[in-house]
Simulated scan of single mutants.
Amino acid sequence: MNHSRDHRIDFYRGLALIFILWDHIPQNPLGLLTLRNFGFSDAAEIFVFLAGYAAVLAYGKIALRSGYLIATARILRRAWVLYVVHIFLMVLLMGIIFVANNHVETRDMIQEMNLNYFLINPQQALVDELLLRFKPNLMDPLPLYIVLLAGLPLLLPLLIRHTAHAVALSVGLYLLTNWYGWNIPAHDGGLWYFNPLAWQALFVLGGAAALQASRNTVVDSRPLTRQPLFIACASLVLISVPIALLWKWPTLHDLVVPHWISERLYPISKTNLAPARLLHFLALAYCTAKLIPRGPWVQHWLARNIGMMGRYSLEVFCLSVLLAPLADMANALADDALAMQLCTALLGVALMLAMAAWLDLNKRLDQQPAQVAPAVAKSGVA
């Protein structure tokens, strides 16, 4: 396997984190620029797909080098860390929401964040929180990732040795989930907003893409206009743009979009990762990989800084979860003035970048003693 780092992955993860922040701030004008406005999928698909890509690439390397038992131990340890982070993050988020709600009079932030259940039944809510059944709004991606990562040891050996078979099993579970409506119970008789039984397909496909990219496979050298798969994917992406834009004008949408398309397209469920969402994202990912190959562009200042956020995606995502309600509170106190909305959205990205830069600096400082020690020992300095 070729383990050379593809810096495009860090860049796309960082871009997804920016989109997630902007999408999570209500009435944010910069949210009009995110992926969800121009197609059937959004930043959540990017996040899960690249999470699978990075996980399989990292733990697959460990499995091949040290064995599946060591890889499993490392995966479960990581899942436990994520679980602890999730609990801690939820406590911080709830504290922010309760404080913000006392200062905002124009809307009920507790209701918007789905925290009424905690106020009505705090003891059961705490139990459900520990069991990942109670999740305020904005928190859903992290529990999904915990479950998907914890289940990775069951599939990793098959995924590495027989990738096609693993993908077939995953897609089969996805199809059965959508057909029979399977899901995991959540609090108060509800269901998971991100159904792990469906979203696992995107996670596994991300892992399969990582394995495919790491192997010396033959690349189609024909012009893109002569590659049928690219033409099909590009057509799907282009067709989805006007349909998604017309969602803002339902009357015009009904006039322009043929009825037979609407009947087969809707509803586009995010919970069960509707086929339209899955196919759109896969087509978009394929076109992006073809049109934007590896190159020096990832070393550009902007791309490099966005990629730095992607390298520390867990920490930056957690910060974005806390920044979104703070930005919402500031916007509400300013009567949702456009200048304040733009300021909070851009300031949030700046703070996320600052955290990534701080983490990157700490990592470099931690690595320096390990590099200096051999030189000191070789010089004979006590």
Rank of each mutant, 00 (worst) to 15 (best):
L314M: 12
L154R: 12
M90Q: 15
L347R: 06
V321F: 02
I243W: 03
L252W: 08
L359S: 03
P296M: 15
T344L: 02
N37Q: 14
R226H: 12
Y59S: 03
L15I: 02
T34I: 10
D336M: 09
V218Q: 15
F40Y: 06
P29M: 07
V257Y: 03
Q123C: 13
W182S: 03
A210R: 00
M329F: 05
K61A: 12
E263W: 15
V298Q: 06
P242T: 02
I239M: 05
M139G: 01
G151E: 05
H86R: 11
F281H: 02
Y286S: 05
N195A: 06
W192Y: 14
L155C: 06
F118E: 03
Y286Q: 00
L236P: 04
W80Q: 09
W249Y: 14
V127I: 15
A345N: 01
I292M: 10
I87P: 04
S221R: 15
A377W: 10
R36K: 11
G310D: 00
Q123I: 12
V171R: 01
H259R: 15
A16C: 03
L175S: 11
L347C: 07
L319S: 00
N272Q: 09
E315R: 09
G14W: 00
Q123P: 13
P293Y: 07
L255I: 09
L132Y: 01
G189W: 01
L173K: 06
F11L: 04
R36L: 09
L322P: 00
D188L: 09
A164F: 13
N195L: 05
G52I: 01
I231V: 10
L273M: 05
Q111Y: 10
L154Q: 05
T271N: 10
I160F: 00
G39M: 06
M1C: 09
A324T: 03
P136W: 03
S320A: 13
N216V: 14
Y68F: 14
A350F: 07
V147S: 01
Y53D: 03
A337C: 11
F38C: 08
R107I: 13
E105Q: 15
F40A: 06
M340P: 03
L342C: 07
R107L: 12
D10R: 00
A324S: 07
L238I: 10
L156K: 06
S262I: 08
L322E: 00
H3Y: 14
F38W: 08
L126R: 07
L361H: 10
E112C: 08
D188S: 12
T217D: 14
V381N: 10
P157S: 05
S240P: 03
V171H: 04
K135N: 10
A16S: 04
T271K: 08
A354G: 11
G151S: 10
D108P: 01
M352Q: 04
F118R: 02
Q299H: 15
L236H: 08
P157Y: 03
Q371R: 15
L359I: 04
L255D: 09
L149I: 04
N101C: 04
T163M: 08
L176M: 07
K270A: 11
H103Q: 15
L338K: 09
P293A: 06
N2A: 13
